[in-house]
Amino acid sequence: MKCSFCGLEFDPKSAPSPCQRCPVSRWCGRRRCPGCGMEIAETGSETGTGARRRRFGKGWCWGGPAASRIQTTKPAGAGEAVLTELERNRPAEVSSLRVHDRSRLEKLMALGILPGLKITLLQKFPAYIVQVGNSQFALDEGLAACIFVKPLTED
């Protein structure tokens, strides 16, 4: 779509969403231009609470699964699952991190949660607790939903 203010052409799916900063609880059908920050109505877009939940609902990283410039890996492959759906105490390997914004990726990197590492989910409530190497970390649902894992078969 084209910004009506500065004329920049951009892909509405990859534009950063202003939703999370906004007190309106329904999806208003507007997109924010990455060039100038102007909010423009997206034609033919679905509006309302349900639409917002489908786009930015529980369990998805900020911006949803499709929208991403810094998305770190390809879509979920065979045998891959999101960490929040992993069984407790079942050993798994981190297969990818799917993160929309840079600061979240930096947080996971700072904890040392990176693809290829063995990870075990210890607890889901009230926060997700994972064992990686010799360390335990607590994560909230938003961050846990960015981590994709491949369950390992026990031998």
Partner: peptide, 15 residues
């Protein structure tokens, strides 16, 4: 939490 601008915070902590 609704009115102050800014992204909702992430919680991550080493135990």
């Amino acid at each position: 939490s609704r009115l102050v601008p800014g992204d909702p915070p992430d919680f991550y902590l080493e135990i």
